[in-house]
Design a protein around this nucleic acid. Structure first.
Lengths: 124, 124
DNA sequence: AAAATTGTATTATATTATTAATACATTTTT
DNA sequence: AAAAATGTATTAATAATATAATACAATTTT
């Protein structure tokens, strides 16, 4: 059984919490390629949210390529060829791209980035 | 003369554009430690914004430690001991911290991060 | 000490983002 | 072909954020 946590007190919007939960389910292996997601209405009822809020989460995941929506049929996990590790990698690469953009716009070079990563990681 | 660009058509809020401009001025060396920033009202008039919008930018920079506000006196650039390179480093480190948080919460390890950084950087 | 200059706080307005209400269209099942 | 289950679109209500209007407090200058 998959786990989807939505805390209405959190500052993070509900639809983003759904997205985050589903990504974690995929990364953990509890959701696999080809699996069917809960129907929009069903999940909405469970979370006490409007169906449109769930639909927004699914729609966003679809635009990211992780989900395929079929009217009348349902929403399906779409994790292509590379499998689980590939998915994790592509999600990480998205974060890395955004980070490098910000770093370079600060005038940092790749060496600066490497140093910063090692320095901060060492302090965890 | 320092440069502060605010484009009201940009989706980025005006106060954030001010913050960004000022950080660039510091990194470029046009603003140095101990320099005085333009008075809130003066900059607001120049940019055709409400003084509170400029104040919000200054206040945020203060909370980040880059500015010191003194009522009646003004706002002063506060870049401590390490100098310019140190400032760049501390700004970069802030970005790195946020990035590593996101990466680790995806389940990535440090090796994954190193690989991703090198792979993405190579494609620039 | 008075006036001018400066940052701060409070409240109101406008804009944007999020969520909800409702009706519609497609597919599947019977 | 009818009914049920599903995703989609349109519009409205709500909440969050950004900006502005105005009044206040502290400092500096004269």
């Amino acid at each position: 059984m998959i786990r989807i946590n939505v805390d209405l007190n959190s500052p993070l919007p509900a639809y983003q919490q759904i997205i985050q939960s589903l990504k974690i389910e995929v990364l953990s292996g509890r959701l696999k390629n080809g699996d069917r997601l809960p129907p929009i209405r069903e999940l909405a009822k469970l979370l006490k949210l409007n169906p449109n809020t769930v639909a927004k989460a699914y729609y966003t995941l679809e635009s990211e390529g992780f989900v395929e929506s079929r009217p009348g049929s349902g929403n399906w996990v779409n994790v292509r060829a590379p499998g689980l590790d590939g998915l994790k990698r592509s999600m990480l690469d998205g974060e890395t791209r955004a980070y490098l953009d910000r770093a370079f716009s600060l005038g940092a070079g790749l060496d600066d980035v490497r140093n910063s990563v090692e320095r901060i990681a060492a302090h965890e």
